[in-house]
Design a protein around this nucleic acid. Structure first.
Length: 115
DNA sequence: GCTTTGACTCTCG
DNA sequence: TCGAGAGCCAAAG
């Protein structure tokens, strides 16, 4: 009985984080805190760790199973670390229609997506 | 199985 | 307003 899928390599906590990230519509962003709260935990750092360890990769955005980790920012609307560089993250956000100035979301409250 | 680390957040100075 | 420190949870070593 194969009760486990090939995704078993990924912790459930991570999978939940990815699932929530995928729910983020285009042109919108969210924060690590919201994701953690949605998961029913306060492990904000764990959420970020999931992004860093995300197997889908940001460069794999061409696929459908991608995780728009670039749409996840800090609670203050400020871009934190990024595996591929904050510049890349800011560029992606700009392409999404989100204005990013000095690694910070210009209209953070406007583009902030709440689940 | 314990210790360290981490793409965080909050509070104090 | 800006800077530094403590707290929290989960995964990896």
């Amino acid at each position: 009985m194969t009760k486990i899928f090939k995704t078993d390599r990924i912790p459930e906590f991570y999978r939940k984080v990815y699932a929530l990230c995928k729910k983020i519509p285009k042109g919108k962003v969210t924060t690590y805190k919201i994701l953690a709260e949605k998961l029913g935990t306060k492990a904000y750092r764990a959420v970020g760790a999931a992004m860093n360890r995300n197997p889908y990769g940001i460069l794999n955005c061409n696929g459908k199973n991608m995780v728009p980790c670039h749409r996840v920012v800090a609670s203050s609307g400020h871009l934190h670390g990024f595996a591929h560089g904050l510049t890349k993250k800011a560029g992606l956000l700009n392409k999404e229609g989100i204005k990013v100035v000095t690694n910070k979301i210009a209209d953070f409250e406007k583009v902030l997506f709440k689940f």
